Computed example of a mutant assay.
Amino acid sequence: MDNEMILSFLAKSENESLARIAVTSFIAHLDPTIEELAECKTIVSEAVSNAIIHGYDGAYGMVTVHAILDGEVLSVTIKDEGRGIPDIESAKEPLFTTKGHEERSGMGFTIMESFSDEFRVESHIGHGTTITFTKKFSPIQAIAM
Results as ranks from 00 to 15, higher is better:
1 M>E: 13
1 M>P: 12
3 N>V: 00
3 N>R: 11
5 M>D: 11
5 M>W: 00
6 I>E: 15
7 L>C: 09
9 F>W: 00
9 F>A: 15
11 A>S: 15
12 K>Y: 06
13 S>R: 08
13 S>C: 04
14 E>G: 01
17 S>D: 15
19 A>M: 13
19 A>Q: 04
19 A>R: 00
20 R>H: 02
20 R>W: 03
21 I>E: 15
22 A>R: 07
26 F>L: 11
27 I>L: 13
27 I>R: 05
27 I>S: 12
28 A>E: 15
30 L>E: 14
32 P>L: 13
33 T>L: 14
36 E>H: 03
37 L>K: 13
38 A>T: 14
40 C>I: 12
43 I>F: 06
45 S>H: 07
45 S>Q: 09
45 S>E: 12
46 E>M: 04
47 A>M: 14
51 A>M: 12
52 I>C: 05
55 G>A: 05
55 G>S: 07
57 D>Q: 13
58 G>A: 07
59 A>D: 10
60 Y>H: 09
60 Y>P: 05
60 Y>L: 13
61 G>V: 03
61 G>Y: 05
63 V>W: 03
63 V>A: 06
64 T>F: 01
65 V>S: 09
65 V>K: 04
66 H>C: 07
66 H>L: 08
67 A>T: 08
68 I>V: 14
68 I>A: 06
70 D>S: 13
72 E>M: 06
72 E>P: 04
73 V>K: 14
74 L>K: 04
74 L>D: 03
75 S>E: 13
75 S>T: 15
76 V>G: 10
77 T>P: 00
78 I>E: 12
78 I>R: 04
80 D>F: 00
81 E>W: 00
82 G>Q: 06
83 R>D: 13
83 R>W: 07
84 G>V: 08
85 I>M: 10
85 I>W: 07
87 D>V: 05
88 I>P: 10
90 S>H: 05
93 E>L: 11
93 E>C: 03
93 E>G: 00
94 P>F: 07
95 L>Y: 12
96 F>K: 04
97 T>V: 05
98 T>M: 10
98 T>G: 13
100 G>E: 02
100 G>S: 05
101 H>Q: 07
101 H>P: 03
103 E>S: 09
103 E>C: 05
103 E>K: 04
103 E>N: 13
104 R>F: 02
106 G>S: 11
107 M>R: 04
109 F>A: 15
109 F>Y: 15
110 T>H: 09
110 T>E: 14
111 I>N: 09
112 M>T: 01
113 E>P: 02
114 S>K: 10
114 S>A: 15
115 F>V: 02
116 S>P: 11
117 D>A: 08
118 E>Y: 00
120 R>T: 14
120 R>E: 15
121 V>W: 06
123 S>A: 08
125 I>H: 02
125 I>K: 10
125 I>D: 10
126 G>Y: 03
126 G>F: 02
127 H>S: 14
128 G>V: 02
129 T>S: 12
130 T>A: 13
130 T>S: 14
132 T>R: 08
132 T>L: 10
133 F>M: 10
134 T>R: 08
136 K>C: 09
137 F>A: 06
137 F>D: 09
138 S>K: 09
139 P>L: 06
141 Q>V: 11
143 I>A: 04
143 I>L: 05
145 M>I: 01
